[in-house]
């Protein structure tokens, strides 16, 4: 019994020293990491948005596909589109995307903010050309393709080997388009009062 207690004490001591070291490094690096994330978000917003200026982020939920949105305004103040932060389910974790939709639900542009897919196989959504098969689609008459069989032969071949990643991205974009069509197009101020 005494031996086991000594072993437990020694392991606890090692874990405590490790925790202290990690806590110290976390305190030093956290501000830099947050700043890098803020800059990356700004770059991503600029990439998915060509014409207008994004407004304040409106948080919708911590779970589910659509997490938040940014209304995009033109210079004259008119609402032009919505940039949604959507989260899909990939092969090895969440696929976090920023996607800009017209009020009709048509996708303008999309960008992968974060993922944990296998490098070289499931990282195709990092490339802008990956989204060509979705852009211009998403309204009621022309839905976003969510299965490989909905794609042309060339597009279908391009996602071979990473079908789960493709389906994860496609479902997230399709849900985002449906949210814009069914909710934001009817109530552009949706959920704005939640954080107030």
């Amino acid at each position: 019994m005494r031996k086991i207690l000594i072993i437990g004490f020694k392991l606890t001591a090692i874990c405590m020293v490790a925790s202290l070291a990690l806590g110290f490094v976390n305190v030093v690096t956290r501000p830099h990491i947050e700043e890098n994330k803020r800059l990356a978000l700004q770059r991503a917003l600029a990439l998915v948005n060509e014409v207008g200026t994004p407004g304040e982020e409106v948080i919708i939920a911590d779970t589910g596909v659509v997490r938040s949105y940014y209304p995009v305004f033109l210079d004259d103040g008119t609402l032009s589109s919505f940039i949604l932060r959507v989260v899909g389910v990939g092969y090895s974790g969440d696929l976090v995307l920023l996607a800009n939709f017209e009020p009709s639900g048509r996708l303008i542009r999309a960008f992968m903010l974060a993922h944990t897919e296998t490098p070289g196989i499931g990282d195709q959504p990092e490339r802008p050309e990956f989204y060509n098969k979705f852009i211009g689609r998403g309204d009621a008459d022309n839905p976003i393709p969510t299965r490989r069989t909905h794609l042309s032969r060339a597009d279908s071949d391009s996602v071979a080997g990473a079908t789960i990643t493709f389906v994860g991205v496609a479902n997230a974009l399709a849900d985002g388009a449906a949210f814009v069509r069914n909710v934001l197009a009817k109530d552009p101020n949706y959920a704005k009062d939640i954080g107030e």
């Binding site: 490790a18 070291a21 990690l22 490094v25 976390n26 030093v28 690096t29 956290r30 990491i33 890098n36």
Partner: peptide, 14 residues
């Protein structure tokens, strides 16, 4: 794992 996490945080920050 402690040293790996330290490297990860430093890389992510800098």
């Amino acid at each position: 794992a402690t040293f790996t996490a330290i490297v990860e945080m430093i890389l992510q920050a800098f």
